[in-house]
Design a protein around this nucleic acid. Structure first.
Lengths: 233, 233
DNA sequence: GTTTTGCTGATTGCTGACAATCCTGCGGAA
DNA sequence: TTCCGCAGGATTGTCAGCAATCAGCAAAAC
């Protein structure tokens, strides 16, 4: 039987779709950190009931993009230095585990796919398409994690990557050492393809080390949590 | 100001409390794996509205204790071998990170507390109080993770530990090598107190290795996901 | 006998209205 | 002047009912 056009996009539950809309607004910076979210207003804009909006907000709270103050307010999460440190350290641990496990499942085709992504990354950087480059960067890491065939890890990783991206939007952060970036990714992909679990894990984990150390230093200096907000200085 | 009698139990949101009730029923095995959950029935038993039950179930779904089949049913999660492998590998990675970071914050008082827990664990095992022993065991690991002062890690760890316990209830699993258990915990605590990050991480991670390897072998043999169900054979 | 089709009861998804709670600002007292 | 308490308004929390969807069964078609 010929496969008919999927109605899935219509089929998805309303609260999920509402969450998608709000999420993308947050990740694109339309809704900035700290912004208060009113259930009534959202329900009017999205043309769904307040209960549905509530359910959507609860999902986003689980993803770490939104915070709830009981009986009082919802707001877009504000990522402090402590939060950034938490996000990056967790990311390291998860991608480390992912890379270690990926080694057991990687096929030749997977290897080719990963190498192709590194090439794309290189091309994007050479041509100055930095927005594309970060997308490919994240995609590469996610691809490796997917190879671990670990549903829970993949899901948690999605959430963490989302928070990393959100933090980058907030702080206006962009990588500066692109050459190092390329060689790091190349080495990581090589290790995965070579099925060297220890090396793959070590490389995946150390990928964020520069940021983690910077953030740890900031914390030692500042003592208390301070908000990172040097947007496009 | 003197701390007044906590109104927390009254103050907490209704859906959270509903989730607490259902959760404890699941973790105690009153609601077995695969059991269908009817919103109407739960709302009558808990004396709250269906919307509140719905919110509670959504929370439990995020914790991995419950699964939703859209438009059709809620059911208590059924933990397959694959799931168990996922849970234990994730646990290793998280507790590894936790132990590594704990090293930076551990005080003398913390060290004493950890050592006391090991002693309690030893006593419980000696006296045959195995139920207490597992509680202390989990408590010890959680205490170390708490020392990392990492909110996101602590929360994720809580969820993972919950799933570990749930899996243990389902499979009737109990540790058998209690002597090894004690020495492993002693070594881990010593490493944390000695502020040896690498050793602490390695020990924390390897704590589950026996289970992980067993599960991985089962997966290789069984090929497809099979449910572990040798309950008190 | 097997497959398809249409119905029915049950269950989940969503909505609008009501109740509980919190923040704001004003007035009065120390 | 400053602090406290207390309405009033705004916002979130909870509820009961209607709509959409699904599994199962029985009848019809081949």
């Amino acid at each position: 039987m010929a496969k008919l056009a999927s109605l899935k996009s219509e089929k998805r539950l309303l609260d999920r779709r509402a969450a998608d809309q709000i999420r993308s607004h947050i990740l694109e910076g339309v809704l900035p950190a700290g912004e208060r979210l009113l259930e009534t207003q959202l329900s009017e804009e999205l043309e769904v009931s307040r209960g549905t909006v509530r359910s959507a907000l609860a999902q986003l709270a689980n993803e770490g993009l939104v915070q709830q103050v009981a009986f009082t307010r919802w707001e877009v999460s504000d990522t402090s230095t402590v939060d950034a440190w938490e996000i990056y350290t967790l990311r390291g641990a998860m991608e480390g585990l992912g890379a270690r496990l990926a080694v057991n499942n990687v096929t030749e085709a997977d290897g080719e796919r990963l190498r192709a992504m590194v090439d794309e990354l290189l091309a994007a950087i050479r041509e100055g398409r930095f927005r594309d480059a970060t997308d490919i960067d994240f995609g590469l890491h996610s691809a490796i994690v997917e190879l671990a065939r670990h549903k829970r890890l993949a899901e948690q990783h999605r959430f963490i990557v989302q928070q990393v991206r959100f933090h980058m939007v907030q702080s206006g952060f962009l990588p500066n050492d692109y050459d190092g970036l390329i060689s790091e990714h190349k080495a990581l992909v090589d290790a995965v393809i070579a099925r060297d679990a220890d090396r793959a894990e070590r490389l995946a984990r150390s990928h964020n080390d520069a940021e983690v150390h910077l953030l740890a230093e900031l914390l030692k200096q500042g003592g208390r949590a301070r908000v990172v907000r040097e947007k496009a200085s």
